[in-house]
Amino acid sequence: MSRHPGLNLDASHAPAHDQAVTLVFGFWVFMMSDVIVFGLLFATYVAMSDALAGGPGPHDLFELRTVFIETLLLLISSLTIGMASLSMKHERDDARLFIWLGLTFGLGLAFLSYELHDFASMVEKGGVPSRSGWLSAFWALVPLHALHVSAAMLWLVVIAVQVLIFGQDSEVKLGLLRLTVLWHFLDIVWIGIFTIVYLGELG
């Protein structure tokens, strides 16, 4: 039986296995609070979808191709970070862990680069937040997700450095368990973004 959201360790990982019950649950509660933030930004976005104020609209600004690539990158990175946490649970081999973490970081970086490219091309076409209510809603929601991804990548680096210094000790394990939960959570938010923000407007 699983005791908390995300991957559960097993008894061979005591004491991290027991500490995770409270710590990962607490982090999950924080995610649930965060999901309200995103939910309200989604609602605001939907409510403002007509507020173009004569400015450029979704068909002028969005590129389906890059959004598709971003979606794939994030989905694959969800798999690789899952593999990283499985490697931590079962293999306990730093080198293998680094490979998975490195892959995840690279995919995250690629995702962010594509997003930055999207943002830049929007600005180029006059899609800046000061142009309309709809653009304001876009620029509050999607970059907030990008900010979350950046924070998660910074966390990933911090955890990698800690593995170098401390090895895979309890704190590292607890950190990686929570980072994995955050990463999957961000992918779920992204499902909302590509469905509502991009495809909902283009479809």
Binding site: T44, M48, A51, R131, S132, G133, L135, S136, A140
Partner: peptide, 10 residues
Amino acid sequence: FHFFTNDLGG
């Protein structure tokens, strides 16, 4: 931004 302004779709 224009979330709550009078103009530009706020």
